[in-house]
Design a protein around this nucleic acid. Structure first.
Length: 499
RNA sequence: GGCGGCAUAGCCAAGUGGUAAGGCAGAGGACUGCAAAUCCUUUAUCCCCCGGUUCGAAUCCGGGUGCCGCCUCCA
């Protein structure tokens, strides 16, 4: 199987061939750090997280770069509102970003460049464009001349005439042409500013990604990713700037993730229908959100509802129940042995291969997950009821699970122990319910403790032993009302928190 | 107005020419003191509608309807 990806450039799926065999250089547009991240950011970041994990799983050596936009109008506005320096705003939200996304288990990229750390590169690239006649200074600003780049619109499928006809572009008298965009903006008094050949100012939005990606990955690299909304104008402009400056192709494959919808509408701040990541993570365990996101293709819109989240939780619970059995087998001292021959276990034996085939098809996580679930059913059939008494079966079961763990890891699933997932993972809220920035507070859950539960289980065991089933059922119901689920098995009664 | 995407069971969601994956929910059965979990069986004669191409289409083509996104800061 070979990897195919849907390339926004050309709008079709095509075979993926890296510039240097076995190596992939990849740049993903990160966030502008002026506010908390919402589930839309989670979708984009998880999508590319899975992509990177899969590419590495498939044997590629991946250099993964993701930036922080840490200077722009919104940041300045926020700083003014709060009466603090802009750098304090960005620090606060970068910290919040890590706080949220570490919980989601995102890989750290190989580098996370910030615009303000790359002012010399940005100025140099801007100068290069001015010298080449592709950009022009005007009153302390520097604008990119769109008309000077014949390929403008090739990514987004737009043409310059239509854009002009659309005429929703602000007319600025300093621009030669309404479509031109700022590479460098003169700063107003009191605004953050850096020295430049055109006077004090700051970078425009698009130029930073060109400068930083080229610095870290070279003038031509393999993959450039981001949300669908960045296709135009952001990525279109990046291409124009970069290719006009270097005369070389910029990124070769453009990958864009779809949106998160709420009730079938785009989630956005202006509609007021957005959820911050930490709100969601206050309701469900992080992997539930990952499962939810992985259950549809990264390019499709995904509708966020309480119901779909509950379905994701149910699916993930089922996966963790397998891991629970795995842990029981290990505790019983079993070691992985070999799968039995036969057609019955074929879906399990073939799981990794089928998983890879689906992922090779433009990272089809939904189909990949389907294959994994098929294998799970087969694996469950092999599960010993009493691992301590069935060492051989336990060994076979462990061998089967070992086939599934790596693919599950690519999706970022089943990364914690089942014990933690079911017993302490519960509904975690920052203490005091704080959903604000940089809370940094411990996550807590209020439930009956293990000692208390074990006491109740013992009382119930005694009741059952004397055939007092009404008392046994009463204890079970009582615990259930407190959010604790009891399960009777061959080796005794186990418990887990329901949510 | 320009460009693009989507429409598959109660819900979510794969499948893009060979006769409908998977998950959730539901039903029946096995197991269990009863449950829970797990396993087995079961749940779309059919993939928005109408035409067409084809031996054969959910999948291709034409037309229609509905929903959504981008064209402005945005993951």
């Amino acid at each position: 199987m070979t990897l195919s990806v849907f390339n926004t450039m050309g709008n079709r799926k095509e075979p993926f061939v890296p510039l240097v065999p076995g190596k992939i250089r990849m740049y993903v547009c990160g966030v502008t750090v002026y506010d908390l991240c919402h589930i839309g950011h989670a979708r984009a970041n998880v999508a590319f997280d899975i992509i990177v994990r899969y590419l590495r799983y498939a044997g590629y050596e991946v250099t993964y770069i993701r930036n922080f936009t840490d200077i722009d109008d919104k940041i300045i506005r926020k700083a003014n509102q709060e009466g603090i320096p802009f750098a304090e705003v960005t620090k606060k939200y970068i910290d919040a970003f890590y706080e949220d996304f570490d919980r989601l288990g995102l890989l750290r990229p190989d580098a996370e460049p910030k615009a303000t750390d790359h002012i010399p590169e940005i100025v140099a690239l801007t100068e290069r464009l001015v010298r080449a006649g592709k950009a022009y200074p005007a009153g302390g600003d520097v604008y990119y001349s769109v008309k000077g780049f014949p390929g403008y619109g090739k990514l987004s499928g737009k043409n310059v005439e239509d854009l002009l006809a659309g005429a929703r572009v602000d007319v600025d008298e300093r621009k030669n042409d309404p479509l031109d965009f700022a590479l460098w903006k003169a700063s107003k008094p009191g605004e953050p500013a850096w020295e430049s050949p055109w006077g004090p100012g700051r970078p425009g939005w698009h130029i930073e990604c060109s400068a930083m990606s080229m610095k870290h990955l070279g003038e031509t690299f393999d993959i450039h990713g981001g949300g669908k909304d960045l296709v135009f104008p952001h990525h279109e402009n990046e291409i124009a700037q970069s290719e006009a400056a270097t005369g070389k192709p910029f990124a070769r494959y453009w990958l864009h993730n779809g949106f998160v919808n709420i009730n079938n509408e785009k989630m956005s701040k202006s509609l007021g229908n957005f959820f911050t990541l930490r709100e969601v993570l206050g309701k469900v365990k992080p992997e539930v959100l990952r499962f939810f996101l992985a259950s549809s293709h990264y390019r499709s819109p995904i509708d966020y509802t309480d119901r779909s989240l509950a379905e994701a939780k149910a699916g993930l619970d089922r996966l963790y129940r397998v891991k629970e059995k795995v842990e029981a087998c290990r505790e019983a001292g079993a070691v992985p042995s070999k799968l039995p021959p036969g057609e019955d276990v074929a879906p399990l034996r073939a799981a990794a291969e089928r998983f890879a085939a689906s992922m090779d098809d433009d990272f089809n996580t939904a189909a990949a997950l389907g294959h994994l679930f098929e294998a799970i059913r087969v694996l469950n059939r092999l599960a010993p009821e009493d691992p301590a008494a069935q060492r051989e079966e336990a060994g076979i079961f462990l061998a089967g699970y070992d086939l599934l763990d790596p693919p599950l890891g690519v999706l970022g699933l089943l990364r914690m122990s089942a014990r933690d997932y079911f017993r302490q993972g519960a509904i975690l809220q920052p203490a005091g319910g704080s959903l604000t920035v940089g809370a940094g507070t411990p996550l807590v859950t209020v439930r009956p403790g293990a000692a208390e539960i074990l006491g109740r289980i013992e009382a119930r065991r005694a009741a059952r032993a004397s055939k007092d089933y009404s008392e046994a059922d009463r204890i079970r119901k009582e615990l259930e009302a407190a959010g604790v689920l009891l399960e009777d098995g061959k080796g005794g009664t186990t418990w887990k928190y329901k949510e």
